[in-house]
Structures are given as structure tokens and as C-alpha cells.
Amino acid sequence: MTCLSPGPVWAALLLGLALVRPTAEAGTIRGRVDVRLEWPPVRPRPAVTDLGMAGPRSTPDRRRSVVYLEAGPMGAFDDRSRGEAALSQRNEAFFPYVLAVQAGTTVAFPNHDRTYHNVFSFSKARRFDLGRYPRGQSKSVRFDRPGIVRVFCDIHAHMSAFILVFAHPFFATTDAEGRFRIPAVPAGAYTIAVWTDGNVRETRKIEVPAGEAPVDVDFQVR
């Protein structure tokens, strides 16, 4: 499946102020994202100055996808999240590799490694630098502005992660089997998108009917 270029996606976001017929009831969107992409193992930057090989490190799960509504009902934006989430540093990798949160969420960055890490981001949505802190300690950042935040470690160039900050609560991160579930979606017509490892892979029009029957949407990412 080809990735969508940013242009149509931005256009879709700007056109998000469209009218739909509302109902009082809410439905659920559920499904599975079947990621068939293959990634080679991330090797560290050529470290010619080292006196030996670096220690073992973990591999992040890059198949985890985020499924979200490109636009949500206006009322969904009134209540900013005061939630909390965590992005850990473990075995020289960030876990999870992709974290989806609602604007207003505070994300903790606990260090579980014996070495220092220096978590930072230069993303427009949130620019921060947490400095160096040892194992067992954590620092937090509040994300108020929707957008995509690339997270890196200033000490270990191979470490990276994504934080997707949404203006509304209608999103879900896939589990290990690729399954997702977006509950409490007001009935109406929407565009649903699937995002995997840095790109929107597919968008689709869906109708969420009033009633308890969930809407099933499956994606295949190649």
C-alpha cells in the first residue's frame, strides 16, 4: 500500500470542519492493522572511536500503528486531557516506539538503563531537552499542542520514538496482534486513518451508525 503524501492529508485536516448528521448515540470502531512491512535491524552509527563493541540493545516494535479519526466532533475538543502516559528508556531503546496521547497529557520518561540517556525533541509541536538522569529516575513533559513529536536520545543516535498528540480522543494504538478499538465515537461520517512508522499509510471513509454494533475496519499495510 502506498503512503499518502502530506499534501492530501493536510487538505483533509483543513477540510475537517465539515457537517455531518449527528445522533445522540455513540458507537465503537474496531479492527486490525496487518503490517507486512519488514525493517532491517537498526544498527548503531559507525562508532569508529570506540574501543570495543557496544552492549546488547533492544529492538523497538515498529509494527505498532495508530488508528485515528482525521476529524472529530467539535464537542470532543472542549475537554483537554489531564492524563498521564510513559515512554521508557530500556536497553538503549524507547518503549513504546509509538505513543499516542491526547493534548494535555503529561508523559513521563523513566530511565531503566544503567547508563545515562538524554531525551530531547526539536519538533515544532514540542521542543524539549530533559538532560541526563540516572536509572530509576524520571522526568516529565506535558504535551499541549497537537502534532507529531520525534523523540531522540542525545547520547545514543540509534534511539528514536514517536509521540502523536491528538486534539481529540478518537484514536487507538494497535496491540501486539495489530488490533485496535476506538470507543464512544458519536454516530456520523468520518475519515479514519492508519499511521505506521512515520507515515499515514491509508485513509478510509466510514459511517458510524447509532447503536451497539461496532464498525469493523481492517487495514493492510505493505
Partner: peptide, 20 residues
């Protein structure tokens, strides 16, 4: 009912993993 954007854009130069 009006819809509003999720506020999420795709990074223009994000590459998978992007180790630099």
C-alpha cells in the same frame, strides 16, 4: 454536527526509524 481536525500532521521528512 461540525467536525474539527485532529490536529495531527504527517512529518514531511520523517523516515522509518530515522536514525540520522
Amino acid at each position: 454536527m461540525a467536525l474539527a481536525s485532529a490536529g495531527l500532521g504527517t512529518p514531511r521528512h520523517a523516515e522509518p526509524g530515522e536514525p540520522g
